[in-house]
Design a protein around this nucleic acid. Structure first.
Lengths: 266, 266
DNA sequence: CAGTGGTCTAGACCACCGA
DNA sequence: CGGTGGTCTAGACCACTGC
């Protein structure tokens, strides 16, 4: 906003607080403040600005790049990652969206409910008082004409009120939450359970009878504050959790091919 | 074995093949050959041996440490990680074992089957001919007196023959596989599905009726070669997959507290 | 071409840990 | 205490990208 230039920034050279960590925190704050939407500074620029060695800059940048917050590569000018690029690292629910998109299938949603509610249990999970108004969205997610998941979301009304008039049928919730409300999810915790859908749920999801499903519960956070409670039911006959390529311990929720090749109940 | 000292080792200084990557590969090989069981060299020792800068050594070591193959920390002499410490990074099945152990519960198994079989489907998954003899182990895993998981494993008999006389009731399969057969799992791919156990499976696992379960299928590899096919059924009313702390996209299979606090079928 | 990051060197000081 | 890794500097050369 001010546009002022400070030649050097406030890095304290003292033990116990490495320069690269301080720099990392400062860069995080500036990313949060959208100071870099017009382009992220190169390593040498940061060396100059903060008066540290390039090695120190690279130590801080390595973290930001691993987190996917900044995209940088040899030759290209570096840039801040788009929310969507960050979100892909946020767990099973995102890989659900991506996995379906990766197969070139059209995704849409049938909105079953979009209203303001009060729910003491959900509010508690969000760390809010039990009477806090919440925007509640319930939708059935489809690929083509086939139901894939039943998605139930609660957001604090304080943040999410603009979404009450939004059209969720074609767009990602995260995208709308970011664009209309300025809330970008940066972190989250998920819990995944195998469940047997209730008859009502099964009617919505379709599929063979006695099919189990994934129950995914998720607390989404932005800058450390809870901003989303989500409970999604994913059809178990169409999706599997598979280890991520690198064997890093990560998992992806992947759409199974229509011909369930191997049931492998050997 | 030889005890010979080569002052410098074969690192080629040429573009397109960074020194730290070459060093990383050499160290991997030496780890595979158990050259470091009596202690892993420090950074300065590697600087001297390979005639590269400490920075280069650290670049290679960073990878080995992130992979958990080497344990190193300020002050302490570095060392090669034990198989168990590596295995903890090998997916949901290991965290099952650890999660139960972490709660201080006694783990044991009831062996239901331990014999040599031929199974064309499983053999194919292991990349073997359909008549290849396999060691098959089926066991019910318990914590205290309560069944937790039904575990079915197939191993190539060529590797696993010594296990036919082993006692699995108290010890981890991975530990025995490593100790008796010299096979240390280094990698693996898993697929996790929600399923409804068959009546027979449900009788073994116990729990409320109409409880869903995790079906975990796993192909375990050692040095790139498949050495294990596994199909485990985990009780869904006692375990959940939860995101790993760092939000790295990883998941752990965690034992739920006996009092299922939040069903959250909101 | 100029600017980017990728790699590498040769030093330095310090904090931590175990003997 | 000596050895470990953690941090930091000031340089250098190169490969890649896009103009």
């Amino acid at each position: 906003m001010t546009g002022e230039r400070r030649g050097t920034r406030e890095l304290r050279r003292e033990p116990g607080s490495p320069l690269w960590q301080q720099l990392l925190e400062l860069l995080r704050q500036r990313l949060d403040n959208d100071e870099f939407t017009a382009g992220f500074p190169g390593e040498l620029a940061l060396v100059e600005e903060y008066q540290v060695s390039r090695h120190t800059v690279r130590a801080a940048m390595q973290v930001l790049r691993e987190e996917g917050l900044v995209i940088a590569g040899r030759g290209r000018p570096p840039r801040q990652a788009e929310p969507v690029e960050i979100a892909r690292r946020l767990g099973a629910l995102y890989s659900l969206y991506e996995s379906v998109r990766g197969l070139g299938l059209e995704q849409r949603s049938v909105i079953r409910c979009l209203e303001v509610q009060r729910d003491a249990v959900v509010a508690a999970r969000l760390g809010l008082g039990e009477d806090t108004p919440l925007v509640h969205l319930e939708r059935l997610r489809l690929a083509g004409d086939e139901p894939l998941a039943l998605d139930r979301v609660w957001l604090p009304k304080v943040l999410a009120a603009p979404l009450l008039d939004a059209d969720f049928s074609r767009t990602s919730l995260y995208e709308l939450y970011a664009r209309l409300c300025g809330v970008v999810l940066t972190d989250g915790r998920e819990q995944i359970l195998p469940v047997l859908p209730t008859p009502a749920e099964h009617r919505l999801l379709g599929g063979p009878r006695d099919t189990a499903a994934f129950s995914i519960q998720r607390l989404g956070q932005a800058k450390g504050r809870p901003v989303e409670w989500r409970h999604t039911l994913v059809r178990g006959d169409r999706f599997a959790l598979t280890t991520a390529p690198a064997g890093t311990g990560g998992y992806r929720l992947e759409l199974l091919s229509p011909t369930r090749g191997g049931d492998a109940r050997s």
